[in-house]
């Protein structure tokens, strides 16, 4: 059973010190990720949703150690990545890759796209000679649905959707088992978004990949994920099967999120839920339940005691005193 877990995150914390005053002493911390634990099974897609400032991107970067976590464990294939020496970090990138949000700023404008896709092959010494490299690049282009005549073009000659395909091809070059997708479709137009979502789904099936899919768009996350984790101010407040979480959300925050998504059907009418204020600053996280300042069902206990994630059904965890 333990073997089927590909990635296990245990109590991961990322604090950024805030300096100020005389001598720029540390006067506080931005608690971007504040004790997150979850695991992802092989071949599964875990969706991670939250509003801006909820810490979802930081969590993704900490897992890859593109940002050093403050504490906690990231166990990938039974090895704790956080304990790896700085010089050996690149080993994990042979098996774990990331796709970024903005296809315009994550490609080097001075490199031909063939070189961009081929670079990981050289860095990780996965090819012996030039002809092998060209063959591999061609294969990658084919996998992401790009014509191989594009090899000698520069990023500026491509559209947003094509660039995102290049970024996916680059991530696939090392044949990773886990890909962290950080808002891969947010910068794309509606008709292009569908192409990329379908591509990610196809690749997952063909190459038996595992995804951690980070997005603020609940509809996209629901479509692609097997399970969904909802993050609020650095903590997971609900995690469970995506159908369950979306059709009968239990945590008041999840309810609020799902209610807020506009449904493309003019006949769906909702009553208005008044919302108390916006997401608080991660520097001053509210005491007790971190959602209590905006919750419509707040009771005294919520202000004092922080609820733990409790399993209410198999595999469905909620952090609320009243579920």
């Amino acid at each position: 059973m333990e073997n089927s877990v590909l990635l296990k995150v245990k109590n991961l914390i990322k604090y950024f010190p805030v300096r100020g005053g005389r001598f720029s002493r540390i006067i506080g911390y931005v608690k971007a990720v504040d004790g997150v634990s979850f695991d992802i099974k092989r071949g599964e897609t875990l969706g991670l949703v939250g509003e801006s400032g909820s810490g979802k991107t930081n969590l993704g970067l900490c897992i890859l150690r593109l940002r050093e976590p403050t504490s906690g464990e990231v166990i990938f294939k039974n090895r704790d990545i956080t304990k790896l020496k700085q010089t050996r970090i690149s080993e994990i990138y042979k098996d774990m890759q990331i796709i970024f949000q903005d296809p315009y700023s994550s490609l080097n404008p001075r490199m031909k796209i063939g070189e961009i896709v081929g670079e990981p092959l050289i860095i990780h010494k996965l090819i012996k000679n030039k002809s092998e490299k060209t063959a591999k690049i061609k294969k990658l282009f084919e996998e992401v649905g790009l014509d191989h005549t594009y090899i000698d073009k520069y990023p500026h000659e491509l559209s947003g959707g094509q660039r995102q395909r290049i970024i996916i091809a680059r991530a696939l070059a090392v044949s990773p088992s886990l890909i962290i997708c950080d808002e891969p479709t947010s910068a794309l137009d509606v008709s292009i978004q569908a192409q990329i979502i379908n591509l990610l789904e196809d690749l997952k099936n063909h190459l038996s990949l595992t995804y951690l899919f980070i997005s603020h768009d609940l509809s996209v996350v629901k479509h692609i994920s097997d399970r969904i984790a909802v993050m609020y101010l650095g903590k997971i407040i609900e995690i469970g099967n995506s159908e369950n979480v979306c059709s009968s959300p239990k945590h008041p925050y999840t309810k609020l999120l799902i209610f807020s998504v506009p449904i493309p059907d003019p006949e769906v009418k909702y009553e208005h839920i008044p919302l108390n204020d916006e997401i608080p600053s991660p520097i001053n996280i509210p005491s007790g339940c971190r959602f209590h300042t905006r919750c419509n069902f707040v009771k005294e206990i919520c202000r004092q005691i922080e609820p733990e994630l409790r399993e209410i059904e198999k595999g469905w965890f909620i952090a609320c005193h009243f579920v």
Binding site: S191, N198, S219, K222, H223, E243, V261, D265, V268
Partner: peptide, 18 residues
Amino acid sequence: LKSIPRLDVSRGIRLKVI
């Protein structure tokens, strides 16, 4: 309309691609 993922439709329906 067929290419957008929808929250009110159950999973498993493939998106239409333009």
